[in-house]
Design a binder for these strands. Structure first.
Length: 575
DNA sequence: GCCGTTTTCGGCCCGACTGTTTTCAGTCG
């Protein structure tokens, strides 16, 4: 059973929780939390870094002790330190910690004074009115804890960012109508373009703040008001999503926007940097003593600590501050850079619009070319094309290109990679096309080695150009299949083929980490819509955000090239 | 437990809101 970074992060997080309950040095606790965040947010598997001979103590927040514990987990699957703690504290205390309103101090009190170890025991004690005997607990605590347990409102699952965009924009429009409001921005992981979000953080400038707070907590979308203050309120919507609102003055807007955009790791690094320069950063500004020296704009905050503005998508504490300091920030790819789209479907397979309608919709979006890549598949649910129908579509495209001005439809196919690595269509057909996208649509359960070999073999095919949605994951629905992505990326580099970044809200596949690795390994990424309708091209915005999170510049993205250059790149040099 | 153009000790990011208090601890982001 391979140990993944998330497993190590979970162990460190549990160590932090249990140590906190034991009243350990809070900075020691924080060290475990920082390490969990570092390992969890790492692009590569730690096991891989070790295999490459990298020194783990060079990772931020990882020193000798924690590096040794990481190795211990990888080698044995557990950490002795955690086992020791479990001899004194039941593992189920973690479940209690996840109940809103319960932290280490109160969990410890519950356990030591009342012997409560599980949420069920807590509920029973609350119903019997026994919690009131503890200092810090009252009748209100008993009621709210019971409600939380009944609703099972634990840590909420993350949802795909693409599925909350409409909601976020509706909330912004709603708040803009409140009295005294001038600016409304969704900050947080949403603004950083993260593929999934746990909640929405909305920042407003308002004077006074009363009107906007009332309008926010009184919205008919709100199921429950968690907290309501003068500058900060928190609600849970009917769909379960938590939304936090923060109001600041205009003078603090930049500092607050920076602070609430995060990420946490980025903010901590920024504050350390400020400290080193004798400055203090909080959400109201950058301060030298009592004097505010910056804060009206985000740029002013960065400038105050000697940095140029770091785009939100990079603010993950993955080296962006160092890059800014060295004036080596990437010039990130943007929506305007995209010249075309190499992955779209028509009603010939599982799309909803005709070939011509799709082409015209792409042109309306400002694109110069579009590859039609219907499914060629044994999977009948997608109405896959067979060889004859592919060839007939080739003729239709030739005819359409004769009529379209200033736009080119490319002939392609999304062909199934069979379990043995062969492609579903014969060379006689594939050779007639401008590009061939290979995709895994079956055999998700193959073991890692077989899955990897299967994909590598497909990439060796003389007509293979692009690997579609390389991991196969569906956010919130299906995990990625087991595959050695490093070998896939390196093989793409050797064979001169490309990797797709599929922009579908639930795919966003490649993910940001592998985009960055592809960049480092010299493999170009293609940001595709995988559109199944005329509206599907909108999703390219999501793909661009993901690419930016992966530090990709225009030159790293295949479909930023004009048609002539693209054609040259699609001609495989290796055979 | 980590970390170092004020180094190997003595610091460690910062503030708002709630409930239970009577001046604040605990939790959260």
């Amino acid at each position: 059973m391979p140990i993944h970074n998330e497993d190590i992060a979970a162990i460190f997080e549990e160590l932090a929780n249990l140590l906190e309950i034991e009243n350990a040095n809070p900075f020691r606790v924080r060290a475990y939390r920082n390490a969990a965040r570092t390992v969890g947010g790492l692009g590569k598997e730690v096991s891989e870094l070790i295999a490459e001979g990298k020194d783990l103590t060079r990772l931020p927040g990882i020193g000798r002790d924690l590096a040794a514990k990481i190795v211990e987990v990888l080698e044995t699957g557990h950490v002795r330190k955690l086992n020791e703690l479990h001899e004194r504290l039941p593992a189920t205390l973690e479940d209690l910690m996840r109940i809103p309103g319960l932290g280490p101090k109160r969990v410890k009190l519950l356990y030591v004074e009342l012997g409560i170890e599980t949420p069920a025991q807590l509920a029973q004690a609350a119903r019997q009115g026994r919690l009131k005997s503890l200092s810090g607990f009252g009748a209100k605590s008993e009621r709210t804890l019971l409600a939380h347990i009944a609703k099972r409102r634990r840590s909420k699952p993350r949802v795909a960012r693409g599925t909350v965009i409409d909601l976020a924009e509706a909330l912004v429009a709603h708040l803009k109508k409140a009295n005294g409001v001038s600016q409304v921005v969704v900050a947080g992981s949403y603004r950083r373009g993260q593929e999934t979000v746990r909640d929405l953080d909305i920042l407003v400038t308002a004077e006074p703040t009363k009107g906007v707070m009332e309008r926010f907590t009184g919205s008919d979308q709100v199921d429950e008001v968690v907290s309501r203050g003068r500058t900060r309120s928190s609600v849970i919507l009917h769909n379960g999503l938590q939304v936090d609102l923060r109001a600041v003055s205009k003078d603090s807007f930049g500092a607050a926007l920076h602070y609430f955009t995060g990420s946490k790791a980025h903010n901590i690094q920024m504050r350390r940097l400020a400290q080193q320069r004798g400055l203090k950063i909080n959400e109201y500004g950058v301060f030298k003593g009592d004097k505010r020296v910056a804060g009206k704009t985000e740029a002013s905050v960065f400038r105050a600590v000697g940095l140029s503005l770091i785009p939100p998508e990079l603010r993950e504490g993955r080296g962006e501050i160092e890059a800014a300091r060295n004036k080596r920030l990437p010039a990130l790819v943007s929506w305007e850079d995209l010249k075309g789209d190499l992955h779209a479907h028509t009603d010939a397979s599982d799309g909803r619009a005709s070939l011509e309608d799709m082409a015209r919709a792409a042109r309306r979006r400002g694109l110069k070319y579009l590859a039609i890549t219907d499914h060629a598949s044994a999977v009948t649910v997608a109405h896959g094309l067979d060889a004859d129908r592919v060839l007939r579509q080739v003729e239709t495209i030739d005819e359409l290109n004769g009529r379209l001005k200033g736009f080119r439809v490319l002939k392609g196919v999304e062909v199934d990679i069979l379990e043995d690595g062969r492609l579903y269509l014969p060379d006689s057909v594939l050779g007639r096309l401008d590009l061939v996208i290979g995709a895994v649509h079956s055999g998700f359960e193959l073991p890692r080695q077989k899955q990897t070999d299967r994909i590598l073999k497909a990439m060796d095919h003389r007509y293979f150009t692009l690997l579609a949605h390389p991991s196969g994951r569906l956010l919130g629905e299906r995990d990625a299949y087991e595959v050695d992505m490093m070998r896939v990326i390196r093989h793409a580099a050797e064979r001169g083929c490309y990797l797709e970044l599929d922009s579908q809200p639930k795919r966003l596949d490649l993910d940001d980490n592998y985009c960055r690795i592809a960049r480092d390994e010299g493999v170009m990424v293609c940001i595709d819509s995988d559109a199944h309708s005329e509206q599907g091209f909108e999703h390219l915005h999501l793909g661009v955000a993901q690419a930016r999170r992966g530090w990709l510049e225009k030159r790293h993205v295949l479909n930023t090239r004009p048609l002539r250059e693209l054609r040259a790149l699609l001609k495989r040099t290796m055979v």
